[in-house]
Design a protein around this nucleic acid. Structure first.
Length: 433
RNA sequence: GGCCCUAUCGUCUAACGGUUAGGACACAAGCUUUUCAAGCUUGGAACCCGGGUUCGAUUCCCGGUAGGGUCACCA
């Protein structure tokens, strides 16, 4: 069977997380079967549809590497004549009729409801049944040149030969209307799959008001697109292998729309961050450094290169680097010291001074040629620290080097700033005591 | 309210009649060169309720409850 799916957003808002997942599932079903997924814009709502939203959606799909075939024409607004033809066909058949005055005055086209019971089989939910009688004769067009969603969708899906309609659960009650129109028009019924919704942390529908729901926001925060996509697919589906971190290729290999869950899932930002971190850890050092420098222009490249592993430990999303980078200032300029904090817990100035004084000698005795690793620095100091009490010796050293109560360990810091700078900072610290 | 859908740790989930109900995120404690981060180890944490069916139900059926979706001349 040649599989043809579609992603038909209405360009009335920015690319939404839920839309992204719908697009992804449609893409996966098509990719799995070697079929195609069409993109078409459902812009029959002229007032709310905007070009900038179309652009945002396209940019988002590209960011996520979800490929598609553009429908031709791309927009529903570009094929009004086609809808008009089908509309006339329905009216001639007596399956639809023009009706006087609706709520907003003027004529509208109503579908003549046969009042039957519709049962369709949903790939995710099984048999779903509706009694269409309560729909009454619903409106399918404002007039011959102004079709409404449910009608336009049926015409498009029919003409494009869509085999699988995969969409959000919020469309499940539209299905009965669409099947009715489909049968009147003589189109074949596609296979349906209604996927559960993504929920905000309070279990309400994901909306801009209570949550960052735009894909754009995550792109802006510096999430890795592969990680974002990976997280999205995990929301409502578990691969048979049980693996959580999956490439798009692996996802396609394992994916089966029938294994998608029935219930809605809350979007968990912390798990997304965790997954993103797993992807960031795989970025090669040179690329990682380049991104750091893009976000911290003033940083010296040589020092920044040595900071890569320290940054990696602390950053799960690039956005976090923008905050954390200020904690690394002491690598680039002399720290300001608070004499009260220098000796550390349970020690006074005299004790601090004594240890720092000895440390100064130990540092001075280190080789000045070439760089020292953290382990080598440690080797020079360790025996003394052990003998005098690690905390008592190491705290003043670390504070003298960084001027911070929280920082990486003193050996690492010393190995990065180098012997000369370390000595200078120890001297400066000694003078404050 | 009508119709439709859903229901396992706080969250995402595994289980497809018989398990000490498993994993991941988060959380807590301990270990790491007194801090931070990361890492490692350990721990607490769930089958919505009530009836059936069955030798046996988290699992199947029915009802209740709760949550969600939808009831436009929006999509």
């Amino acid at each position: 069977m040649n599989v043809v799916t579609r992603f038909p957003p209405s360009p009335t808002g920015f690319f939404h997380i839920g839309s992204a997942r719908t697009a992804l599932f449609n893409y996966l079903v098509a990719a799995k079967a070697g079929g195609a997924m069409y993109l078409r814009f459902e812009d029959t709502d002229k007032e709310r549809s905007k070009k900038e939203y179309e652009e945002d959606i396209i940019a988002g799909l590209q960011w996520l590497q979800i490929s598609y075939t553009p429908a031709s024409p791309l927009r529903q607004s570009e094929k009004i004549d086609v809808y008009r033809t089908y509309l006339h066909k329905l009216i001639e058949k007596g399956a639809a009729y023009e009706a006087e005055a609706g709520e907003k005055g003027g004529k509208v086209v109503r579908f003549k409801n046969p009042n039957v019971r519709i049962t369709f089989s949903d790939l995710i939910r099984g048999e779903v049944a509706f009694d269409t009688a309560e729909l009454k004769d619903f409106v399918i067009a404002r007039n011959a040149d102004d079709p409404l969603y449910n009608f336009a969708v049926v015409v498009d899906d029919g003409e494009m030969g869509i085999t699988h309609v995969i969409r959000g659960e919020d469309h499940i009650s539209n299905t009965q209307r669409q099947i009715l129109i489909q049968e009147a028009l003589g189109f074949e019924r596609p296979i349906y799959a209604h996927i559960p919704l993504i929920l905000a942390p309070d279990r309400s529908k994901l909306s801009k008001r209570n949550f960052a729901a735009s894909v754009n926001d995550y792109r802006g925060d510096g999430y890795i697109p592969e990680a974002f996509l990976n997280y999205l697919v995990l929301l409502g589906w578990t691969p048979p292998s049980g693996k959580e971190k999956l490439s798009l290729k692996e996802i396609i290999g394992e994916f089966d729309i029938q294994n998608v869950h029935k219930s809605g899932a809350i979007f968990d930002l912390q798990k997304l961050k965790w997954l993103n971190r797993q992807y960031m850890l795989e970025i090669p050092d040179d690329e990682y450094l380049a991104e750091m420098l893009r976000r911290a222009h003033s940083w010296d490249k040589g020092i920044a290169a040595k900071l890569v592993p320290l940054v990696r430990e602390r950053v799960s999303v690039w956005q976090e680097f923008d905050t954390v980078k200020h904690d690394f200032e002491y690598f680039f300029s002399e720290p300001k010291l608070d004499p009260a904090k220098l000796p550390g817990k349970g020690s006074d100035a005299e004790v601090g001074s004594k240890h720092l004084g000895h440390l100064r000698k130990l540092f001075a005795a280190m080789p000045s040629q070439g760089e020292m690793t953290a382990d080598q620095v440690k080797a020079h100091i360790w025996d003394y620290a052990e003998a005098e009490g690690r905390g008592k010796v190491l705290w003043p050293l670390r504070y003298a080097l960084t001027g911070r109560e929280k920082s990486p360990d003193p050996f690492t810091v010393a190995s990065i700033v180098g012997k000369e700078v370390a000595l200078r900072r120890i001297d400066a610290a000694l003078q404050t005591l």
